[in-house]
Simulated scan of single mutants.
Amino acid sequence: MSTEVRRDDAAGRYEVVVDGAVAGYTEIKPRDGVLIMPHTLVDDAYAGQGLAKVLVTGALDDIRSRGERIKPLCPYVRSFLEKNPQYTDLVA
C-alpha cells in the first residue's frame, strides 16, 4: 500500500492518498494569517487503518515547514494535539 499526504491549496485541504486514490482530507481555510482546520474526514472504505493520524501528522509537518500556524476547530485535530504535544507550538 502506497500512502502520501499532499496539500491542495485550490481545494483548501490536505489529502491522504492511498494507491493513487484520495482516502481522506483535512480542510484548511486561511484567515488572518492562520490556517483554520475545521473538519477531517476519512472515507469509510479506509476506516480503521490509522489514516487520519497519517493525514494530520503529514499536514502538521508541512504546515510547520512553511512557518504557518493553525486554529484547530476539528475535534480530531484537537484530540491529536492533546496526544502529540510536540505540535502544540503550531496553535495560534
Rank of each mutant, 00 (worst) to 15 (best):
P85L: 11
Y46S: 00
D61Q: 15
N84S: 10
D61M: 04
Y14A: 06
R7S: 15
Q49M: 12
E4V: 12
T88L: 05
K29H: 12
K29G: 00
A59H: 04
D9N: 12
V56R: 04
H39I: 08
V18M: 02
R31C: 06
Y46D: 00
K53A: 11
R69W: 01
R13E: 12
P85D: 13
V34D: 02
R78L: 10
G24E: 02
R7W: 09
V34K: 14
I70N: 05
M1I: 10
P72W: 11
L55N: 05
L90I: 06
V22E: 05
E15C: 14
T3R: 15
K83H: 12
L35K: 06
V22N: 01
G48C: 06
A59W: 02
E82K: 14
Y87S: 03
E82F: 07
S65A: 15
D89M: 10
E82W: 06
E27V: 09
V34M: 07
A45G: 05
D89P: 02
Y46Q: 02
K83A: 15
A59N: 03
L51W: 10
S65W: 04
E27R: 13
A59I: 00
R31Y: 10
A45M: 03
R7K: 15
D9M: 11
D44Q: 09
A21E: 15
G48R: 06
Y76K: 03
K53F: 00
E82G: 05
T3L: 08
P38Q: 08
E4L: 13
I28S: 06
G50W: 00
R66E: 00
R66V: 01
V91P: 07
A23Y: 02
Y14T: 06
A52T: 02
V16D: 00
A52K: 04
G20Y: 01
Y25A: 04
G67A: 08
G67V: 07
G33N: 11
T40D: 08
V17L: 03
R64N: 05
A52Y: 07
G50L: 07
P72I: 12
A23E: 07
A11L: 15
K83W: 02
P85N: 10
A23P: 09
Q49K: 14
E82H: 13
A10F: 07
V17S: 06
D8Y: 13
Q86P: 01
G20A: 15
K71D: 14
V17D: 01
V56K: 02
P72K: 13
G33Q: 12
E15N: 14
